[in-house]
C-alpha cells in the first residue's frame, strides 16, 4: 500500500512538473490520434453520406460490413496494416513500419468504420424525413449528401468524438505497427503497457491519469454537444 501511495505521489509529481518524457509521449499520442481522426472523419463522412444516398447493388452488404467493422479489434487492425507495410508487403517500399505514420494509418483503419457507420445511420435517418422535400427542390445526389452531413452535424460531432476516444485509448494497433520505440513511436497506451511490465509504476500511473482525464473530457464534450443539439431542436 505504501508503495502504491509512493508511486501515486511520484506520478502526480510527474504531471505537475510537466515531466519531459511524459509530455513527449502525450504529444505524440495526441498527434497520432488527432491526425488519424481527421483523416478518418473525411473518409467516414464521404463513405457514410454516399451509402445513405446513392443506390447501388451490394449497398446493403457494404453497410453491414462497415457496421461490423466498428467492432474491429485493434490488434487485428494493427496486424492488417503491419502486413501491408512490412518489407514483404505491397507497401513495403515506403519503409513506414515503426514510424508515427504507420500508427496513424492503423488508427485510420480502426476509426473510419466507426465514423462511417455512425454517419450513414445519421444521414439515413435524416433522409427519411427530407427525401421528398429535397427531391422537390431538385437536389442532386451530391447536394443531398452535403445537406444531410450538415444537418446531421451534431450527430457527426459525437461520431468523431467516439472515434477519437477509441483511437486515443487503443493499444494493440499502435503497438504492432509502431513498436513502442522510445522517443519515436511511444504513445501513452504502449508506454503504460511497457512501464507497468518493467515495474515503473509511477510513469504508467501518471500516463494513466492523463488518459483518464482525456476520456472524461471527451465524454463531457459528447454530453454537452447532445444537450446543445436538443436545445436548438437540431437533434
Amino acid at each position: 500500500m505504501a508503495d502504491f501511495i509512493d508511486a501515486f505521489q511520484t506520478a502526480l509529481g510527474l504531471i505537475v512538473t510537466l515531466n519531459h518524457d511524459l509530455v513527449e509521449i502525450l504529444l505524440l499520442s495526441l498527434k497520432v490520434s488527432l491526425t488519424a481522426v481527421v483523416i478518418a472523419s473525411v473518409l467516414g463522412f464521404a463513405i457514410g453520406g454516399a451509402l445513405a444516398v446513392v443506390r447501388f447493388p451490394g449497398r446493403g452488404a457494404v453497410s453491414a460490413i462497415l457496421s461490423a467493422l466498428m467492432g474491429l479489434p485493434p490488434v487485428v487492425a494493427g496486424l492488417f496494416v503491419y502486413l501491408l507495410l512490412s518489407n514483404a508487403g505491397p507497401l513495403g517500399v515506403l519503409q513506414l513500419l515503426y514510424t508515427p505514420t504507420a500508427m496513424i494509418i492503423a488508427q485510420v483503419v480502426l476509426v473510419t468504420p466507426i465514423i462511417g457507420a455512425l454517419t450513414r445511420q445519421a444521414c439515413e435517418d435524416l433522409l427519411e424525413e427530407y427525401d421528398e422535400q429535397l427531391r422537390s427542390l431538385g437536389a442532386s445526389p451530391t447536394a443531398t449528401i452535403v445537406t444531410l452531413l450538415w444537418d446531421g452535424r451534431y450527430r457527426l460531432i459525437t461520431a468523431v468524438l467516439a472515434g477519437f476516444g477509441r483511437a486515443i485509448a487503443e493499444v494493440g494497433a499502435v503497438m504492432i505497427v509502431g513498436g513502442n520505440i522510445d522517443h519515436v513511436t511511444r504513445t501513452m497506451t504502449t508506454a503504460i503497457a511497457l512501464e507497468t511490465s518493467k515495474g515503473n509504476i509511477a510513469l504508467a500511473l501518471a500516463l494513466g491519469l492523463v488518459l483518464l482525464t482525456i476520456a472524461f473530457a471527451v465524454n463531457a464534450a459528447l454530453v454537452s454537444v447532445q444537450r446543445l443539439a436538443k436545445r436548438l431542436a437540431y437533434a
Binding site: 424525413e129 427530407y130 421528398e132 422535400q133 422537390s136 427542390l137 450538415w150 444537418d151 431542436a233
Partner: peptide, 12 residues
C-alpha cells in the same frame, strides 16, 4: 414547387 402537408424544415 411544392408545400407539403407536413412542413419539412432543415435543421438550420
Amino acid at each position: 414547387a411544392m408545400v407539403f402537408q407536413r412542413p419539412v424544415l432543415l435543421r438550420r
